[in-house]
Design a protein around this nucleic acid. Structure first.
Lengths: 182, 182
DNA sequence: ACAGGCATGTAAATAGTTACATGATTCG
DNA sequence: CGAATCATGTAACTATTTACATGCCTGT
């Protein structure tokens, strides 16, 4: 049985406790989003499919008059999740518009290349702050250290990236000012 | 005029000299692929669209009996490319199945989490080697330093990532051996 | 002769985003 | 009361991959 990558995000998110589609989305948005996003357009249809396949089970748990279905993982679902976790990862993708622009920066006058690096650096700094804001929440999950490990990895990555941009900026600056002095 | 992100990859790739669709694909494959990929299924239709929009111009340049069309950028195309380069980047995406698996690694017995990190580390090491193999080619492009800058950034990133995996592996190992001694 | 690279393209499928519609509840 | 949040869902669109089809040319 072939499952989409998003299916595993969902299985993972309901593996500890049952959750509604809305809760899954909210969870994804302040955790895996940074390396694996999911939208409502994927989550709700996928929950239906997983439910039909018997990997999750939906139970109506309305809050007052507002209807609500929470999904719990089934034994089959847990097996599917574990099987997947044991396969070596195959998807390693990055889509960095900034790097793409930097790659082609030779068609611009030299000063403007530094501008590209500056926006990249600023974006990475903002990411560091955003992720650091999430850290306290991740800390009080004492029985599962992995979300925090991944979050801290994300922080370090963004810091590394911001510093790389900075280094490249000064490198460019040094070059252009040198040429200017000739 | 709204262009797809792939359109700009193509514009950038033909901005220095005219190239065929096949050459563009080959170029992408050993340069921008690592942060911005493109397949034939995108390149050929996009070349047609760009040609209709007057941003590139196709000229037949057969090699013997084998027909071949090379596309050159037009003044309008160059303007479009520069306009785009001057906009701050908006797409920053990552899809890292390894991090996703690590995030959910709590459902596995502790030793197996280290396995995930090990495959991630190995993948990053391979990437470093692959990128280092490209470096000599990138070096002899003397008039445009940016492709080399981006390539080296990619190498550093993969090295950083591999080292992070290593650190996390030993951290896990220390934890599990400690628990074992209790 | 045959493998491998050059060269162009399309069809089908999968993935994913965006925007919208609907309606309840909670808090200030 | 009004805004924000909870909650579910779909339609339309955009993007992208994979696999295939076709055929020429070059080197062994």
């Amino acid at each position: 049985m072939e499952l989409s990558p998003t299916a595993y995000v969902i299985l993972g998110m309901v593996s500890r406790e049952p959750r509604s589609g809305y809760e899954i989305k909210a969870l994804v948005d302040d955790s895996t989003r940074f390396f694996w996003a999911a939208s409502y357009g994927q989550i709700y249809p996928e929950l239906k499919r997983l439910s039909e396949a018997g990997l999750v089970e939906g139970v109506d748990e309305p809050r007052g008059e507002r209807k609500r279905t929470v999904y719990a993982i089934t034994p089959d679902g847990e097996q599917a999740l574990k099987d997947w976790l044991r396969q070596p990862p195959t998807t390693y993708e990055m889509r960095e518009e900034g790097l793409l622009k930097l790659f082609f920066a030779g068609v611009l006058p030299p000063e403007e290349a530094a501008t590209i690096l500056a926006s990249m650096r600023e974006h990475r700094r903002e990411m560091v702050e955003r992720l650091q804001a999430i850290e306290p929440k991740a800390k009080d999950n004492d029985d599962d250290p992995f979300p925090l490990m991944v979050l801290r990895g994300g922080i370090e990555f963004n810091q590394w990236f911001a510093e790389w941009c900075e280094r490249m900026e000064s490198q460019l600056l040094a070059q252009t000012s040198q040429e200017g002095s000739n």
